[in-house]
C-alpha cells in the first residue's frame, strides 16, 4: 500500500505510457515518430480549449461556454480576416476574454453557479455567431488565410506547426500557473477559498480572470480551427466541449479545485488522443467506438484521479 501511495501522483502519465505501449505493441507503425507527431498535431485545437478549461476547473468551477466561444470565433475570424488581416487574431482573443469575463462576473457577483452562467453565456455567444454569420457556413479566402495564418498549419521538417503554437501556449500557461501572482491566487482559491479571502485576496477578481483566461484560450482554439478548415460556422466546433472537459479530468485536475494543473492537461489530452487513435489500430467498428471510448475512459479516470483530497465523494 505504501508503494501505491508513492506512485499515485504519477498515475496519469504512467497510464499514458502504458496505453501508448499497448497500442504500439499491437501495431508498431503507431509508434513511428511522424505518426505520433501527426496525431499530436491533430488534437491541438482540443488541447488549447482544454488548457483554458483547466483554469476554470482549477478553481472548482466549470466553463461550458468554451465550445460556443470557439464557434463564435470561427465566424468572427472568417468575416473579418478580409478587412483586418492578421489583426483579426487580436479581435478573436479579445472577444473570448470579454465573454469569459462576463461569465466570471455573473458567477461571482450574481452568485449564479458557473455550470449555469457559462452555459447561458454560451447561448449568447451562439446567438451572436448565428447573427454574424447569417446562419450559414463562411469561407476564408485561401490566399489571405495563408498570408496571415499560414504559419499555424504548415510543417517544419516532420513537426506540424500547430505543435509550436501549442508549446508556446503551454509555456505561457505554465508560467502563469507557477510563477505569477495570478497563478498562486488561483491555487489558493481552488484549494481554500475562505482562507484566500481571509488573507485579503480579492477572490472575485481572480475567479473572473480564470474564466476570462478560459474564454481567451477557447477563442485561440477556435481561431486555429477556422484556419485549419479555412472557414467558420456557428456549429463547426460542436463536439469539442465534452472531450475537452474529459481531457482535463483524466489528466488529474478534479472538479474539487486546487489540484492538478496545465501539465496534467497535456497528459489528459494525450490520453484522450491515444484512446481515440487506438480504435483505428484495433480496427474497432465505427459504431462501437463511442462505447469503447466511454468504458476505457471510466477505467482511466478511476486510475488517475487523486481521491486523497475528497472528503466525501459527491
Amino acid at each position: 500500500m505504501m508503494d501505491f501511495q508513492r506512485i499515485k501522483p504519477h498515475l496519469p502519465w504512467l497510464t499514458l505510457v502504458v496505453l501508448t505501449a499497448f497500442v504500439g505493441i499491437a501495431n508498431p507503425t503507431f509508434l513511428a515518430p511522424s505518426n505520433l507527431l501527426m496525431l499530436a498535431g491533430d488534437i491541438v485545437p482540443l488541447f488549447i480549449m482544454a488548457l483554458g478549461l483547466t483554469f476554470a476547473i482549477y478553481i472548482g468551477g466549470i466553463d461550458l461556454s468554451a465550445q460556443s466561444m470557439a464557434n463564435l470565433v470561427t465566424v468572427i475570424a472568417s468575416i473579418y480576416l478580409a478587412s483586418m488581416g492578421a489583426f483579426v487574431a487580436v479581435l478573436c482573443v479579445l472577444a473570448g476574454f470579454l465573454f469569459g469575463t462576463l461569465s466570471g462576473v455573473i458567477t461571482t457577483k450574481l452568485k449564479v453557479p458557473s455550470f449555469i452562467s457559462t452555459l447561458a453565456i454560451g447561448g449568447v455567444a451562439f446567438s451572436l455567431a448565428q447573427w454574424l454569420s447569417g446562419q450559414k457556413a463562411l469561407f476564408m479566402d485561401a490566399s489571405q488565410r495563408d498570408a496571415s495564418f499560414g504559419w499555424m498549419i504548415g510543417r517544419t521538417g516532420i513537426i506540424p506547426n500547430e505543435l509550436f503554437l501549442a508549446a508556446a501556449l503551454l509555456l505561457l500557461c505554465l508560467f502563469i500557473e507557477r510563477r505569477t501572482v495570478l497563478g498562486r491566487a488561483l491555487k489558493a482559491v481552488g484549494a481554500g477559498e475562505l482562507a484566500a479571502a481571509a488573507s485579503g485576496l480579492n477572490v472575485a477578481r481572480y475567479k473572473i480572470l480564470a474564466f476570462a483566461l478560459s474564454g481567451a484560450l477557447a477563442a485561440i482554439a477556435g481561431l486555429l480551427f477556422s484556419v485549419k478548415l479555412s472557414g467558420g460556422a456557428p456549429t463547426i466546433a460542436n463536439g469539442f466541449l465534452l472531450p475537452a472537459i474529459v481531457a482535463v479530468l483524466v489528466g488529474g485536475t478534479p472538479l474539487t479545485g486546487g489540484v492538478g494543473g496545465v501539465l496534467n492537461t497535456v497528459i489528459g489530452t494525450l490520453i484522450v488522443a491515444v484512446i481515440r487513435a487506438s480504435m483505428l489500430y484495433f480496427e474497432i467498428d465505427a459504431t462501437r467506438q463511442q462505447m469503447v471510448f466511454g468504458l476505457v475512459l471510466i477505467a482511466a479516470i478511476a486510475l488517475t484521479i487523486d481521491r486523497s483530497k475528497l472528503r466525501v465523494v459527491k
Binding site: R179, T180, V181, L182, R184, A185, K187, A188, A191, G192, L194, A195, A196, A197, A198, S199, G200, L201, G258, V259, K309
Partner: peptide, 28 residues
C-alpha cells in the same frame, strides 16, 4: 478552513497575504 490553505506549501501560505511585496509586474 480560513487560516491555512491545505495543499499549498509553507512558503506559499506565508506570502499569500503579501504577494505584491514579492512580485514585480505580476511575476513572483
Amino acid at each position: 478552513i480560513e487560516g491555512i490553505v491545505a495543499g499549498m506549501s509553507v512558503y506559499e501560505n506565508m506570502t499569500l497575504s503579501q504577494m505584491r511585496r514579492y512580485s514585480g509586474a505580476g511575476v513572483l
